[in-house]
């Protein structure tokens, strides 16, 4: 798998965020983002534990408690569909269907080319645009079939440009 973080990069993130116990969450989030595959590898978690002088179990405690973390590689783009009640009544189910059909995968799965992971999330405060998805920091609302196709297309092309 390409895009793996090197030790120096992880150390640089820790230095940048500040080598302090209170920075654990923001360090792990930054590592996850830099990973390219939206996860925190065990080796990096170990490194963080050593650097911050906290037990590895505590780092894992945090990694498994908070919903935004993954300890397994995910797609390059994680598509998070909100399924909290306000979105649910605004037909979040239909958004799920549009994405699963467009990508040919089920919820929780990753596409064969590792580009997209589809998953559920709790409300992220965009209920007035329901149904909504979040991809990284970007929020897309008022989803229709055309819009979903457009979004996927943009990300597919964007990733091709990167290469």
């Amino acid at each position: 798998m390409s895009g793996e973080l090197k030790k120096e990069q992880v150390l640089a993130i820790i230095k940048n965020k500040g080598n302090a116990k209170e920075k654990l969450l923001s360090i792990l989030l930054a590592i996850q983002e830099a990973s390219g595959w939206n996860y925190v590898d065990k080796e990096w978690a170990k490194l963080v534990a050593t650097e911050l002088e906290i037990p590895l179990t505590k780092v894992y405690d945090v990694l498994t408690f908070y919903a935004m973390f993954s300890t397994e590689p995910r797609g390059k783009y994680v598509i998070e569909i909100c399924k909290s009640a306000p979105c649910h009544v605004a037909k979040a189910d239909s958004a799920v269907q549009m994405f699963t059909e467009e990508l040919g995968i089920k919820m929780g799965e990753t596409t064969a080319n590792n580009l997209f992971t589809l998953q559920y999330t709790s409300c992220f405060g965009a209920c007035d645009l329901a149904p909504v998805v979040k991809i990284g920091e970007k929020v897309y609302g008022h989803l229709t079939r055309e819009k979903v196709a457009e979004i996927i297309k943009t990300y597919r092309e964007g990733s091709r440009c990167l290469k």
Binding site: E22, L25, L29, Y66, T121, S122
Partner: peptide, 8 residues
């Protein structure tokens, strides 16, 4: 600024 990481 401190950040959360997804926990209601």
């Amino acid at each position: 600024i401190m950040t959360g990481a997804g926990a209601y």
